[in-house]
Nucleic acid binder design. Structure first.
Length: 423
RNA sequence: GCGGCCUUGGUGUAGAGGUAACACAGCAGAUUGUGGUUCUGUUAUCAGGGGUUCAAUUCCCCUAGGUCGCCCCA
């Protein structure tokens, strides 16, 4: 094969597009209910934007970015996530007025240069929200509630919401120091990766999957014990609000996310239907990012849903329920024999479509038998058969494909007749 | 960036060191103007390159791709 899709990319095929559109539609509907408006930043941005916001030492920035130079030698990067572009946009386009809250959502492809595996692609799609301007814990609760609402509406009920607080710029540095001291004492017992993490991102040691590291982590100082009072209060308000809304969640004090900009609340929705890459949604609060990128100090929070993974869970669920992916049925198929008949069919089709009925015909010049077969595969409700005799009479045969009844219907009566039958 | 497994027609699968089997789909016909059943015919040189061999698609190596993990993340 001469051309292949680039590694880590996928073609989303017509056979699976229904499920994609259903998810997208559900998300949009719910976002609009909560008064979020869509924003569409570009697919690539200046490289600095990502390295400043996500963090130079993170995996995303240090080894996963699609970075290139354009013809004027600007360093650009295909967005690995959309929060930084959205923040850039609200600053640049002045969307944030004083003392206002701003609610946005976005949707589209993201790019990370990673080795592909189940649920992980180099081009993948996210749909997400960001809300700016408020540090109220109710905001955190609102977006988490909104995420759970989306998954409920999609009938995905075996998901678990993990939630944690990673502190803020006041209390987190103290904790990190404490953690560093602890792990330096126990360095020999942690894995190679964790020794490196001690320098780059000590928090990540907390959710290392290596069992020996886990043993060391068990006795490590707890993040929640070193949160400052404000952070503690904030977190408690978030979870009590969620409880009030009957959202099921699990506090996971080892949940640390890989992007540097998170403060206080972080959360992740995971599915047990997936392989190692089991997070279908992740997000949290990022109160310092807007200022860091040059805007006024503005608290913010948001999440992103990974569409490929949601699609995968939904496909698995519908298989388990024994649903078939279903052919889309059409109202009418015109089987025409000969060029002249085909032309008549062509004209009739436009009238029928104007009535809002789905209709099609064969352009390959197949035999009648083959056209009937095609109609059958398209699950056509009716077939209108136009041959040479019919051309003279200006009347052709309308066949009901379910009952096999057929009757003569004049060309100029066809759309009325069908319209009547459809209702 | 690291590791395991895999790569045969449109799809899903067999197979053996000596030049490929089955199912489904597709197309054509049996039924020269009618579908969903049945029957018949037809559709590949086994990812690409190199090596071993009288001979490889089957053995070895490399490359590409797939897949599942590690890391990390949606």
């Amino acid at each position: 094969m001469k051309y292949q899709r680039p590694r880590g990319t996928r073609d989303i095929l017509p056979s699976e597009i229904d499920i994609w559109q259903k998810i997208e539609k559900t998300c949009r509907e719910i976002f609009e209910l909560f008064n979020y408006r869509e924003i569409r930043p570009p697919i690539f941005e200046s490289t600095d934007l990502f390295s400043r916001s996500i963090g130079k030492e993170t995996d995303i920035v240090s080894k996963e970015m699609y970075t290139f130079h354009d013809r004027s030698n600007r360093s650009l990067t295909l967005r690995p996530e959309a929060t930084a572009p959205v923040v850039r946009a609200i600053i640049e386009d002045n969307l944030l007025q004083q003392n206002q809250q701003l609610k946005l959502y976005y949707q589209g492809p993201m790019f990370r240069y990673e080795r592909q595996q189940a649920g992980r692609y180099r081009q993948f799609h996210q749909i997400g929200v960001e809300i700016f301007g408020s540090n109220n814990p109710l905001v955190d609760a609102e977006i988490i509630y909104m995420a759970s609402k989306i998954f409920n509406k999609l009938n995905l009920n075996d998901l678990v919401i993990n939630i944690n607080s990673v502190g803020d710029k006041n209390c987190r540095p103290n904790y990190i120091n404490e953690l560093k001291r602890y792990f330096e004492k126990n360095q020999r017992q942690v894995c190679h990766d964790c020794t490196k993490r001690l320098e780059t991102n000590p928090l990540r040691i907390l959710d290392c999957k290596n069992p020996t590291c886990q043993n060391v982590v068990k006795l490590a100082p707890k993040l929640k014990d070193s949160l400052c009072n404000e952070c503690k209060m904030h977190f408690n308000r978030v979870i009590s609000s969620l409880s009030k809304l009957n959202v099921n969640y699990q506090i996971n004090d080892q949940l640390v996310r890989g992007l540097d900009y998170y403060t206080r609340t972080t959360f992740e929705v995971v599915s047990n239907q997936l392989g190692a890459q089991n997070a279908v949604c992740g997000g949290g609060r990022y109160d310092d990012l807007v200022e860091e990128l040059g805007g006024k100090s503005t608290p913010a929070t948001g999440f992103a849903i990974g569409l490929e993974r949601v699609v995968e869970v939904m496909q698995k669920m519908s298989l388990q329920r024994g649903e078939d992916q279903g052919v889309k049925e059409i109202d009418l198929f015109i089987a025409a024999m000969g060029e002249e008949a085909q032309m008549i069919g062509f004209e009739l089709l436009t009238k029928i479509r104007e009535k809002g009925l789905t209709a099609d015909q064969d352009y390959l010049g197949k035999s009648l038998k083959a056209q009937m077969k095609a109609a059958d595969h398209l699950a056509a409700k009716y077939v209108y058969i136009i041959g040479e005799e019919e051309l003279v009479k200006k009347t052709a045969i309308l066949r009901n494909m379910k009952t096999a009844e057929q009757k003569e219907v004049a060309f100029d009566k066809l759309s009325e007749e069908l319209h009547g039958l459809a209702n």
